[in-house]
Design a binder for these strands. Structure first.
Lengths: 216, 216
DNA sequence: ATCAAGTTTGACCAATCAGTCAAGAAGCTT
DNA sequence: AAGCTTCTTGACTGATTGGTCAAACTTGAT
């Protein structure tokens, strides 16, 4: 009749409570890091808890002491990703110089491919699967932001400050060209040679491309 | 002591023998079509034979009557894909007009995103997983072709017939921008609205982009 | 040192996985 | 219609999957 001992995962019912002890913070981080490796290369269905546990250097039951389920780990990774995924576009400033603003946005996205390639692949995997777990985020948050910034780009184009191009395709092109260096890194490495950094020359190329594309 | 009855999969030891009967050709095609659906959205590890069997409207043992294993189905899909994957780039003709040739290549790739989005996602999934089953193809066939065409693009640039841009990044940009419309179609659909065709305006945008990028 | 709380794990479970097999159903040739 | 081949499948297997649980081990405050 006694209440079962609560696990940390149970105690923090919502995503409100931050993990208490030092051990918890440390191990949750280790697990999420290992899970990011596995989910980003094999997708949700293709990843196994045993893989993640091995990668994390923990036992499987220990994983499930910190997270309720495989799904909970994946959800937590996506939640943390969304926080940072919108920021680069959000920073696109209506008061700045159009060309410089778009260029800076492109550079921020390219930097994310350099710094967070696993996160980029996690996102790519999610979209390839039809975005089952991100649909609300994309339909609401992301769409609203893109619509907003597309209006800004359109205004810049109408005002003759950048070339008259479709603002949605402009945004998609930046996503595509920058994320490609993270998502298709193995292919690029195999073609350019393994000693080569896939991102070598990418920034110069993209600066050239967008300078030419955007000139009114 | 009698030899076991051979299955069609066993009979055609190598990829030499074409399937004999009408039923075999038909069912192998049905299976490959269903498997393409499943593998392209869930990746190799995330796909199950039961999913493929259900999608194909066949029983699981029946699947394995036509193919030796899950791996054999996947291998056959990749093999068929490779045949058509190199063609668009192979057609880039040194004797043609540089601008028109590159533009036509871009259009061929965009058409493949329109006609074969599942094949594009199958390829993307394979690369995301580190290209374990395509490494030889990429390191040998694809790399040799890309090196060859990169030399051609470089010669065009050196001759002042197109802008002086890195030929490898030029090729990567075409892959990236065109495949994006297949691989990230769900995201584009959710942002632009479901009634919208993701590829609407894509060709005009890309023509504008490459016209500007390539001008000497 | 003690003791309660927090942490770890071996052993286990039901469900699902890829793949097998023998027997039956459907086609094809005569 | 007979007889042989090709095709199909229900019932199964051993391995792997996500997840549970009670017992044991650590840790930190007193």
């Amino acid at each position: 009749m006694s209440a079962p001992r609560p696990t940390p995962a149970e105690k923090s019912g919502s995503a409100k409570t931050p993990p208490r002890s030092r051990i918890q913070r440390r191990n949750r981080q280790i697990i999420l890091d290992a899970a990011l490796d596995v989910f980003s290369t094999h997708g949700f269905r293709g990843a196994t808890l045993d893989q993640i546990a091995t990668q994390a250097g923990l036992s499987k039951p220990n994983l499930l002491y910190y997270f309720d389920s495989k799904d909970a780990i994946h959800r937590e990774l996506l939640t943390r990703l969304l926080d940072t995924w919108l920021d680069p576009l959000r920073m696109l400033d209506a008061r700045g110089d159009p060309h410089a603003e778009i260029m800076a946005y492109m550079r921020r996205k390219l930097q994310m491919s350099r710094d967070f390639p696993r996160e980029s692949r996690l996102f790519a995997n999610e979209i390839l699967q039809g975005a089952p777990r991100m649909e609300p985020f994309i339909r609401n948050d992301l769409r609203a932001l893109v619509d907003d910034k597309a209006r800004l780009l359109q205004a810049w184009a109408d005002g003759g400050r950048i070339a008259r191009i479709d603002p949605y395709h402009l945004i998609f092109s930046i996503w595509s060209l920058t994320q490609h260096y993270a998502d298709f890194a193995p292919q690029i490495a195999m073609i350019r040679g393994d000693g080569h950094d896939p991102l070598d020359g990418a920034e110069a190329f993209l600066e050239h491309l967008y300078t030419r594309l955007l000139a009114p």
